[in-house]
């Protein structure tokens, strides 16, 4: 029988708990308040992690179908620009501007899936191309300037009684819960796992493989766009070079959360936990004196160590 620690989401959560415990101990102050373990810092981690985490949900879904999406960082950047353009330049409401921002993700997902399903391009190439075009569009629109949303955004505002600071993490948790249920309890999710497990058998089983893949890439695009709206609001900026290179951290979050790059195996809840693991690292490492120049190395090592540990546990679970 499977042990509890062999359930993938639980082992990822344990890694996160151990990580928080480690930094709490390591950064324990000799006097005064704790620099790591306080509500303000936790909120900061959650807020910035949610930008990665929301997009990582989509990345996990695409990877489970056996594909890959390299365009998420570019979609986040362009979404911030488009949202900023309508909010600042066209003076639309934030809701309407955000909806226009979501169109960026929708269009990227449709373009990727058309290239992959229709033109039969490998997902890596298709989304690499989309990444370049969508990123470049941001520079064309802004001409290297940026939209300053912060001037127009209200100060200390609330959304249905919740402080704006808490909105991104709550959105992330809500989306993670929704997609966890969709992936585990709905035929759509089952189809995603089936296509990733054996595409030929899926076709022979009467599944609409092309449609399944299309929904995966469109979902990933839309989720990345939601990340983009969150980033624009959190940063108060719409700027073409925002979220540069995020796609790799987003994919790494999904992988650390137990999603197999060969397809057919993975979890969206795990992807969000993976994003939190990286969020804590990015927050805590700069607080360690002398670690400033090592933080990227440590993040890279963490990816390798966690995935190797996962494989050892999987092998033990099978034996």
């Amino acid at each position: 029988m499977k042990q509890l620690w062999q359930v993938r989401e639980v082992s990822t959560l344990m890694i996160l708990v151990l990580e928080v415990a480690f930094f709490t101990w390591y950064l324990w102050p000799s006097d005064g308040g704790h620099p790591f373990l306080n509500v303000g810092n936790a909120l900061l981690i959650l807020k910035y992690s949610s930008i990665y985490g929301i997009a990582a949900i989509g990345a996990a879904i695409v990877i489970i179908t056996g594909g890959i999406d390299l365009s998420s960082g570019a979609v986040i950047g362009l979404t911030s620009v488009v949202t900023g353009y309508f909010f600042v330049q066209a003076d639309w409401s934030l809701t309407a501007s955000a909806l226009m921002g979501l169109m960026v993700g929708l269009s990227a997902g449709l373009a990727s899936s058309w290239l992959i399903v229709g033109m039969r391009l490998p997902p890596f190439i298709a989304t690499l191309g989309v990444m370049g075009i969508w990123r470049g569009a941001g520079y064309i629109i802004t001409e290297a300037r940026f939209y300053d949303l912060s001037a127009k955004l209200p100060r200390n505002w609330t959304v249905v009684g919740v402080s704006i600071d808490w909105v991104p993490p709550l959105v992330m948790v809500a989306l993670a819960g929704t997609f966890q249920v969709l992936m585990k309890r709905f035929q759509w999710g089952r189809a995603i796992f089936a296509v990733g497990g054996n595409e030929t058998a899926a076709l022979f089983s009467g599944l609409r493989v092309g449609l399944v893949k299309t929904t995966a890439y469109v979902t990933a695009g839309l989720l990345a766009a939601i990340s983009g709206v969150v980033l624009a609001v959190v940063q108060g900026q719409g700027k073409a070079d925002l979220a540069n290179g995020y796609e790799l951290d987003i994919i790494a979050s999904a992988v650390v959360g137990g999603t197999s790059l060969t397809g057919g195996r993975g979890s969206v809840a795990g992807a969000v936990l993976g994003a939190l693991i990286f969020g804590v690292l990015r927050n805590a490492l700069p607080q360690i004196p002398g670690a400033t120049f090592y933080d990227r190395v440590i993040v890279g090592l963490a990816v390798i160590v966690i995935v190797v540990m996962d494989q050892i546990m999987v092998r033990r679970g099978e034996a």
Binding site: R190, F193, A194, G196, G197, N198, T200, A201, A202, F204, S205, G206, L207, G264, R265
Partner: peptide, 17 residues
């Protein structure tokens, strides 16, 4: 190659079509 999903359980294989 064409019939089975080795990442899915027997139950899920049986109800997919």
């Amino acid at each position: 190659r064409q019939g089975l999903f080795f990442n899915l359980s027997l139950r899920h294989n049986l109800v997919l079509p």
